[in-house]
């Protein structure tokens, strides 16, 4: 009828990480894949390539959260792709919030050379948010 399936996909703890190939590679990438069994790592040529439409699509198809991991600010190999990405994800978060989808499910972080545990902390925090929420619209 009018509302065929009015429910959104149920939470399943899966997190997708789109990472810039310059920011995570080699040993570090292997470590992260080893450490976070709940996360899928998707390599992108540049963080600026990640369209929020694709991020939202992953949410609607069952992912619980999406992280975009880019190079540090002013250190992009592709003409400020990281700040472009940051702006786009910010806009995407606002639209998602207006549509009633939790903004913390769309996250953009930049690699910080002084803080190697940032990505791990973000993924763990997101998993905790998912666990604590009963339903995640």
């Amino acid at each position: 009828m009018r509302r065929v399936e009015s429910t959104l996909p149920e939470k399943n703890g899966k997190i997708i990480v789109f990472f810039c190939e310059g920011s995570l590679r080699g040993k570090h990438l292997d470590e992260h894949i080893e450490r976070h069994k709940e996360a899928f790592f998707v390599k992108m040529p540049c963080g600026g390539m990640v369209n929020p439409v694709v991020m939202f699509k992953s949410l609607m198809d069952g992912a619980d959260g999406v992280v975009v991991y880019t190079c540090p600010e002013f250190d992009c190999h592709n003409f400020d792709g990281n700040s472009f990405s940051k702006r786009r994800v910010f806009a995407g978060r606002k639209v998602a919030e207006a549509l009633g989808v939790h903004p913390w499910r769309l996250v953009h972080i930049e690699r910080d050379p002084l803080d190697p545990g940032l990505l791990t902390r973000t993924i763990v925090q997101m998993s905790r948010n998912v666990e604590s929420a009963e339903v995640i619209p």
Partner: peptide, 10 residues
């Protein structure tokens, strides 16, 4: 379905 509606509006 709601997820398609949200996707379109997004």
């Amino acid at each position: 379905e709601l997820k398609n509606i949200l996707m379109y509006h997004f």
